[in-house]
Amino acid sequence: MTMQVEVDESKCIAAGQCVLSAPEVFDQRDEDGIVVLLEQRPGAELHEVVREAAGLCPAAAIRLAELVEG
């Protein structure tokens, strides 16, 4: 299964919760703290922390799609 991560910069409020949960996948811009996506398709070992990050995001700015590739 492949996980695809999307972030909505227009909703991001720069809380940094995603960076605390999954620093391998998310970062923040230095100047305004807006989310930077480092890994659009993180490996399976990161799926749990990415789901945690999406659940914690106080702006619902992280969306996950789990794709079954044929």
């Binding site: 720069a14 605390l20 230095d30 100047e31 305004d32 703290g33």
Partner: peptide
């Protein structure tokens, strides 16, 4: 302040 500046305080 840049939000990242606060993370070390957190």
């Amino acid at each position: 302040m840049p939000p990242k500046a606060l993370l070390s305080w957190r």
